[in-house]
Design a protein around this nucleic acid. Structure first.
Length: 873
DNA sequence: AAACTCACG
DNA sequence: ACGTACGTGAGTTTT
């Protein structure tokens, strides 16, 4: 007989584990989904590992309460489910139903009893059973054929502990059945099992291993040591017997076995797909077979190959109040999808150049809906216009926390439509492959690219207007897309040969360090492996370990720095890390991005950050080393093209100035009007010391406090930043707020506003939603509070430099200059300036940056020039 | 794919 | 009591 594989899941227990193991996650409806997400991942993992043929989930009928951590000497108490978890229970059941996974409940019985009874029945039928639960009480069900599987929620990667009967014996020195006796002696406050007073885990284990059961133990009660335990057992034996009844799981509950004849065949059904879409579990959607995905037709594209016909349709579109367009450009497939009224056309072209040429037909166009404007401009160079409605950019402004703003995301969030994503449709195939396989299908899908933007753009515009953010879109974000596009086109020149020499220079020193470290360690190992390094440092060499991470010892710079004065190996490892970082990320990393034109054309992203900043990738040009001299030298390989120099301009402490303005604190405003050194001034005011007498220690402490304020002050954070105690940090904060009372009011006000509105805002109405503020988890809520304090400041600074960029870029072009913006690094702009334009460029940078916003304090700019970036900064 | 570490503002 | 500074992206190792 082939034994069937059965998996039984303790529904509430696993949901609870998942809820606390997976960080906050909500879908667009605001429904919390982290527990369900974690549950499904544990479930899928179990199905795969156990090769399950039958799967059943058991639930209690009453919403259970859950154990929480032990506090001091007291037993854990049970807390009711927080709302964020409670709301997930019915949804999880819906998901399971949609997947046709049987759910079993029984009036008057707990999930434990259902699991116990089912596992007994299946075992009797000769099946291999796995019971999955977070609750160790279930270990009493383990046998030779019944495995108890307890997932350990190690953030992200869930590991499982598996127990057959023999494993229980090995780990706990008692058999599964004796587990009941053990609990009967120990008791369990959270389960209302009284147990025997005065007998805890240690004594209970001793007694049960010796006598096998409470009955046997009672029969030999006179032999039990210590005498105290014996007396207790004698006196409270009836209590122990009663406890045993309570602790025992009923394996003979009157449970009807659900119909599992269909097995797991129907797990990936259409209705399950719809549920996963609704919950926005993109990872899980990948498991669904693409062939089975229903494809709603929004407006399939009609193919138009004739160039004249194409042009005619475009002219027709130009006469409408709004149309949409989306260029396609991949290997061997070029063309434009466009839509207007309820029509949609696919206009293939013979080459990328032909597609490029079509852009001219759109000059002076009416409202034009698109997606990912900046990216599209590379294939379809539209003239800059304020009539473009980039639905991705608009959706980003309405909710900057999303990780994607593709048509399906927008269809779901703003039109309540469920559309298949590109990944759902193509999988790993290219559009051109789909075209040759099934033309109709390809045209249906292409329709989404143009039809959806056309439908969604008015909705998004209305939403922006309602939230007072239309101006932010029109005046800042949209023009910025064009500026960023031009910056990507411009790129920055990098001397390939000099970069290689820099890397070679590092290699020599890296090899020396490597040998020195091996010598001190007494063996060769991979220094870059935190695991191996931790073992060497903290186990072999017995260095005192500071922190621990989830997986082992922390070997982070902050730990090694504390050791480096005493232990040379720590200093060497730090230097080794520094150099290998420079070599791999910068010397080698950047080299991979140098194009034929000797320049690096990185990407600047406008829809990534939660605060409104720009981000940079492929490569990241916003984190080129500067703080340490050796790293800083890499900037010498960034050079302007012949006939140009670099002009670099950065704001001086823009975030603190924004804080001064937004809080309206007269003391800080006055400080900025007077002092050239704001950290010194802060030190003077916070420590009540005359400006001239401020020590460098005081100044650097004040600087750390200023940073802390911007990050959303907490005594712990400041104590870390300054390497002082929390108490001392608290004193600093108190003194700071005494010196600048309005700042305290302002920051408190931001948190209050966040809690009231669910979002905080910048000076230019940029919105940052903060769902964490409503978390029942202290840590997440505190994070939300720090975010509420930081985002308006960081975001307003981001707004200001965006305005400056747009104005600088506009003037460079309108004044017919050859100089070009090449980089933005949050508070810094780098221009490749023609030699004869340097003075003009400096003037433009100074004027446009200092006047980008009118604040209650001046915006100060530092400007430098140089023949490389090292020199210009 | 996740964890860790580290580069920048 | 909880366990942290805010915002990013990339390389390496480990699972």
């Amino acid at each position: 007989m082939i034994s069937k594989k059965v998996v039984l899941i303790d529904g509430h227990s696993i949901l609870n584990r998942a809820f606390y193991g997976v960080p906050i996650l909500t879908n667009s409806e605001g429904l919390h989904t982290n527990g369900i997400y974690g549950f499904l991942n544990i479930m899928f993992k179990a199905i795969e590992e156990e090769k399950a043929e039958t799967l059943i989930v058991a639930f209690d009928l009453k919403a259970p309460t859950f154990r929480h951590k032990m506090y001091g000497a007291y037993k854990g108490t049970r807390k009711p489910m927080p709302q964020e978890l409670h709301e997930q229970v019915p949804v999880l059941k819906e998901v399971l139903q949609a997947m046709e996974i049987p759910i079993v409940t029984k009036e008057g019985y707990e999930a434990d009893d259902i699991l116990g009874s089912l596992s007994r029945i299946y075992e009797e039928q000769g099946c291999d059973v796995t019971v999955i639960s977070g609750d160790r009480d279930l270990l009493q069900l383990a046998t030779e054929k019944v495995k108890i599987s307890i997932p350990k929620t190690k953030a992200g990667g869930t590991q499982v502990e598996n127990y057959y009967a023999e494993d229980v014996l090995k780990t706990y020195q008692v058999t599964p059945t004796q587990f009941i006796d053990l609990k009967a002696l120990m008791g369990d406050a959270s389960d209302n099992i009284p147990g025997v007073p005065g007998i805890g885990e240690k004594t209970a284990t001793k007694i049960i291993t010796a006598y096998g059961s409470i009955e046997e133990a009672h029969a030999h009660v006179d032999d039990i040591k210590p005498a105290r335990a014996a007396n207790n057992l004698r006196e409270h034996y009836d209590m122990a017997v009663m406890s045993k009844k309570l602790a025992a799981i009923d394996t003979h509950a009157p449970i009807e076995i659900p119909d599992t004849s269909a097995g797991l065949e129907n797990m990936y059904s259409q209705s399950a797909y719809q549920m996963m879409k609704r919950l926005e579990f993109k990872n899980i959607l990948n498991r669904f077979d693409q062939e089975n995905v229903a494809v709603p037709v929004l407006s399939a594209a009609v193919e138009l190959t004739d160039r004249n016909e194409q042009q005619q349709k475009i002219f027709e579109a130009m006469s409408r109040p709004m149309f949409s367009a989306y260029p396609i450009c991949e290997d061997g497939l070029w063309g434009l999808v466009m839509a207007y009224d309820d029509k949609c056309f696919w206009m293939p072209t013979k080459s990328a150049d032909d597609l490029n040429g079509m852009a001219g037909w759109f000059d002076g166009h009416p409202d034009m809906a698109v997606m990912d404007l900046k990216e599209r401009l590379h294939y379809f160079p539209l003239k800059e216009s304020d009539n473009v409605l980039d639905i991705s950019l608009m959706a980003y402004l309405l909710n900057p926390l999303k990780d994607s703003y593709d048509y399906d995301d927008i269809a779901r969030d703003y039109l309540g439509m469920t559309l298949p994503s590109r990944a759902d449709l193509y999988g790993k195939k290219k559009l051109s492959e789909i075209f040759s396989e099934d033309r109709t299908k390809a045209l249906t899908w292409l329709g989404y690219y143009a039809s959806l933007p056309l439908k969604a753009a008015p909705e998004l515009r209305a939403a922006l207007e309602k939230e007072n953010m239309w101006e932010l879109y029109r005046e800042i974000e949209l023009p910025l897309s064009f500026s960023l596009y031009r910056m990507e086109i411009a790129g920055i020149r990098v001397e390939r040969e000099a970069l290689r020499e820099y890397g070679d220079h590092l290699v020599g020193r890296i090899q020396e360090l490597e040998q020195e470290i091996y010598a001190l360690a007494g063996e060769e190992f991979n220094i870059l492996s935190p695991k191996q390094l931790g073992t060497i440092l903290f186990e072999k060499l017995h260095l005192p370990y500071g922190k621990k991470t989830k997986t082992g010892y922390s070997t982070s710079a902050s730990v090694l720095e504390k050791l480096q004065d005493e232990k040379p190996i720590a200093r060497l490892v730090l230097e080794y890390r520094q150099l290998t970082k420079l070599k791999s990320t910068y010397a080698d990393g950047l080299a991979n991005f140098i194009s034929e034109d000797e320049r690096i054309h990185g990407k600047f992203h406008q829809t990534i950050t939660a605060t409104g900043r720009i981000s940079s990738t492929e490569p990241n040009l916003q984190n080129i080393p500067v703080r340490v001299e050796l790293g800083r030298r890499i900037r010498k390989v960034f050079v302007p093209k012949d006939g140009c120099v670099f002009v670099d301009a950065d704001y001086s402490q823009i975030e603190l100035r924004v804080l001064a303005h937004m809080s309206g604190d007269e003391n800080l405003i006055e400080a900025y009007k007077q002092a050239e050194d704001i950290h010194r001034m802060t030190a003077s005011q916070v420590f009540h010391t005359p400006l001239e007498e401020v020590t460098s220690q005081q100044r650097s402490n004040a600087k750390a406090v200023n940073f802390g304020i911007i990050y959303g002050i907490s005594s712990f954070g400041l104590s870390q930043g300054l390497s002082i105690t929390r108490k001392e940090a608290e004193v600093y904060i108190k003194q700071y707020f005494a010196a600048y009372p309005k700042i305290k009011d302002f920051l408190d006000g931001l948190v209050a506003e966040g809690k009231e509105k669910g979002s905080v805002y910048t000076l230019f109405h940029r919105k940052r939603p903060i769902p964490e503020l409503f978390s029942s988890n202290f840590m997440q809520r505190s994070f939300g509070e720090r975010v509420a304090m930081n985002s308006p400041i960081q975001g307003t600074a981001a707004d200001i430099i965006k305005i400056a960029m747009i104005h600088v870029d506009r003037r460079l072009r309108e004044e017919g200059l050859k100089s070009r913006l090449v980089l933005q690094i949050h508070d810094e702009l780098l221009i490749e300036a023609a030699m004869d334009e340097v003075e003009t460029v400096k003037q433009i940078l100074h004027d446009e940056m200092s006047h980008a916003a009118k604040l209650k304090v001046p915006l100060e700019i530092d400007i430098n020039t140089g023949t490389d970036w090292y020199e210009a900064k």
